[in-house]
Amino acid sequence: MSSSLPQSNAVSKKKKKPVRKRKKKSFLRTLSRLFLILILLLIAGGSWLYFAPSAHNLRYLIADTLITTQHRYMAKYIIGEDELKDRVKEYNERFVHMGDEKDTHTIVQPPVEVEKPLVEIEEVSGTGYSGYVMTVNDPTKVRLGVPGKIGSGEKVSSMVSRTGAIAGVNGGGFADPNWKGNGFKPIGLVISQGKLFYNGLGGKKSTQIVGLDKQGKMIAGNYSLNELSDLGVQEAVSFQPRLIVNGKGLIKNAAEGWGIAPRTAMGQRDDGALLFVVIDGRQPGYSIGANLYDVQQIMLKHGAVIAANLDGGSSTVLVKDNEIVNKPSSQYGERYLPTAFLVFEHPEQADITNIWEGLDPAKIDAGKKRTH
């Protein structure tokens, strides 16, 4: 019997090997089937996305979202190159017309019953997005901040700290070649403390602006330099589109909302309080972003009678008490920007000088390496 034991073990070992091989083959077959199913699903999903009428809105949502990023060119793989050009042209034309209606809103100062804090911040959220609404209860306390050194933009947190502001939000756009701009060449106009700091219109007679007049009334829409002067505009940047005029939302639905992205916008209630909406984006699991219709609806819900879009994307940032409140989407953190709306307890003491004085806008290198 003792001589039979080793033989029995040998037989046992020989029987186990085919079992392992069968399990391995079974696993490979299952993996192959899953891979095939995945390929078929991708083909089916791609066919639906590109050819099904029911996928039209989703197709353009993806394209519009790509248009708002540095990967705009990729939108042509979703809707085609010709359609991409037409889409961008259509939006630009629509945005211009959204600034044409004359704004007639007035500020009615309510009787002061309870003294409110100058700045209040609340969280907002919706489908796919999270962000903040900053209310500035005295609009005359806002000034437009600009960089402190020639040759480079400046982070909003730095502007806030350097000028002694209590809060700040990014402002207008800037030339940004290959999304590597230094933030020093604004797009359009920059007006601060009633003075024209920068004129990059290049012969254009008018531009879409977002700003404030001497009484703290918000001015937004399409205006010429002479009109801005007649209106007594004190603080302003160029940007578009206007979202609300005379208490009426201008964007009909989400399909016209220009994709999903981080957003910044400015609005005003009829009691004069300014509303800054800051929506984070491009961060799955936290906030993907919002379209302009979402921002418009947030503004309307908070009582805005006028509102306009500001520079968004990776520029979107909200600073309060020298702390960044939101989560900027840029992998490098805050961007260097040319302008920011800053809130001061004592704006008359703010030291904001014209950093572009004497410079020719046409000769400013937008992509030159930052000096600080």
Score class of each variant (00 low, 15 high):
113 E>D: 13
115 E>Y: 08
323 E>P: 02
155 K>M: 11
156 V>C: 05
234 Q>K: 14
15 K>N: 10
159 M>N: 10
105 H>M: 12
362 A>L: 09
81 E>I: 05
90 E>W: 14
171 G>R: 03
216 G>K: 12
134 M>L: 14
57 N>Q: 12
363 K>M: 12
68 T>I: 12
368 K>R: 15
182 N>C: 06
298 I>W: 00
250 L>E: 03
135 T>H: 08
304 A>Q: 12
51 F>S: 15
23 K>Q: 15
148 G>D: 13
235 E>Q: 15
371 T>W: 07
246 N>S: 07
150 I>M: 09
141 K>E: 02
224 S>I: 08
205 K>E: 15
2 S>A: 13
105 H>W: 12
243 L>S: 04
272 G>E: 01
103 D>K: 06
83 E>A: 09
229 S>N: 07
270 D>Y: 04
146 V>P: 07
315 S>T: 14
203 G>R: 07
153 G>M: 05
23 K>E: 14
236 A>K: 09
347 P>K: 03
184 F>E: 01
356 W>F: 10
303 G>P: 03
332 Y>P: 01
293 Y>A: 03
285 G>D: 03
218 M>G: 09
73 Y>V: 15
215 Q>V: 09
164 G>D: 07
68 T>G: 07
154 E>C: 05
79 I>K: 06
107 I>H: 10
226 N>T: 11
340 A>C: 06
106 T>G: 02
109 Q>A: 09
120 E>S: 15
28 L>I: 13
251 I>A: 03
54 S>M: 13
78 I>D: 02
47 S>I: 15
313 G>T: 14
318 L>N: 01
217 K>N: 12
221 G>P: 11
176 D>P: 11
46 G>W: 03
208 Q>M: 06
60 Y>P: 06
27 F>D: 10
119 V>W: 05
85 K>S: 11
133 V>N: 02
20 R>N: 09
261 A>Q: 11
228 L>C: 06
61 L>G: 10
300 L>W: 05
275 L>P: 09
244 I>W: 05
283 Q>L: 08
69 T>D: 04
203 G>D: 10
335 R>F: 13
317 V>W: 00
187 I>N: 15
23 K>Y: 12
287 S>D: 02
192 S>D: 01
40 L>E: 04
223 Y>C: 06
251 I>K: 04
274 L>Y: 13
27 F>L: 15
269 R>T: 06
255 A>L: 06
66 L>T: 11
168 G>Y: 03
62 I>D: 08
276 F>P: 01
58 L>N: 14
33 R>V: 13
139 P>N: 04
318 L>T: 01
247 G>T: 10
44 A>Q: 08
298 I>D: 00
300 L>E: 11
79 I>T: 07
7 Q>C: 04
348 E>I: 00
131 G>S: 00
219 I>T: 10
343 V>M: 05
345 E>K: 15
7 Q>W: 04
67 I>H: 07
264 T>D: 01
15 K>H: 11
242 R>L: 03
358 G>I: 07
46 G>A: 10
